[in-house]
């Protein structure tokens, strides 16, 4: 029994002619403290798996479990206290009329935390934003700063599991590396469990110990980081992805070299 167990998950949107099977029978399990990656092209259903886990997408078949407890219907407040999510587009995931302060204070108010002032200040500090950012509006922030705020919002409830839905794909390359390093550091410091969804094999290989490759709503294969380094992909589609990411890795390595 892992931290998260997903068995034979299927997600279907719409009815009749408009029926779309986004996920068609996915099973995987993530251990406590592990970082698990889901890779696939756009439309492969990888984000839908995360959304189904937190109750944003309808589950048509299969079971989801957190720490052994099966998740059915509307998630409880206690669930959201343990599982938080970071969204892909930091321009869409922050309310345009709310300051950073109210974005971070609201979850604390919902869950009745004490010492809210101190927690907000510490959360900003943790993600590398100073107190000067506290009363800014999202339109006064850059994309990377917004994503840091989104990460701070997810971390402020001190969750055990962090779901990352393409957390860096809307950011440019140098900011991507910074945000990934931040996520890496936070995980080691707090012993978090990650599920990272990305179309970029290089990002997943950097962040995750194990990964699953998805295509057309199905799992193509499951690999460990060692497998990936040894290039022991059995499936044709994974090899294509590997090849694509190699061309990318040259420039990515150069960018990281320049950043450090």
């Amino acid at each position: 029994m892992g931290m998260i167990d997903i068995t034979d998950l299927a997600v279907t949107f719409g009815h009749g002619a408009a029926r779309v099977q986004a996920v068609r029978g996915i099973s995987f399990s993530v251990q406590r403290g592990e970082s698990y990656g889901i890779v696939g092209e756009s439309g492969s259903g990888k984000s839908t798996v995360l959304r189904a886990l937190v109750g944003l997408a309808p589950v048509t078949k299969g079971t989801l479990a957190l720490d052994g407890d099966t998740l059915i219907g509307r998630r409880s407040k206690a669930f959201y206290r343990r599982v938080q999510m970071v969204f892909q587009d930091p321009y869409a995931s922050l309310h345009p009329r709310q300051t950073v302060d109210s974005v971070l204070s609201e979850p604390l108010a919902i869950h009745g935390f004490d010492d809210r002032e101190g927690r907000v200040a510490r959360a900003l500090d943790d993600v590398g934003l100073g107190l000067g950012f506290r009363f800014r509006y999202p339109h006064q922030l850059s994309g990377g700063q917004r994503q840091r705020v989104a990460i701070a919002r997810a971390l402020i409830l001190e969750p055990e599991v962090l779901l990352l839905d393409e957390p860096t794909s809307a950011l440019d390359a140098s900011i991507q590396a910074e945000v990934l390093n931040l996520l890496d550091r936070v995980r080691t410091e707090r012993g978090l469990t990650y599920i990272l969804v990305s179309h970029d094999l290089a990002v997943v290989a950097h962040m995750c110990e194990r990964l699953m490759v998805m295509q057309h709503g199905r799992a193509v294969e499951e690999l460990s980081r060692a497998d990936l380094h040894a290039r022991v992909a059995t499936h044709e589609y994974t090899r294509t992805l590997l090849l694509a990411s190699e061309g990318y890795r040259v420039s990515d390595g150069a960018a990281q070299g320049a950043a450090s």
């Binding site: 669930f79 999510m85 587009d89 995931s93 922050l94 309310h95 919902i110 919002r153 409830l157």
Partner: peptide, 16 residues
Amino acid sequence: ADHIAAIQLQGASSAR
């Protein structure tokens, strides 16, 4: 919108 999904995931009530 994602920011509504985000606040839902924070456990906020519909009224809030």
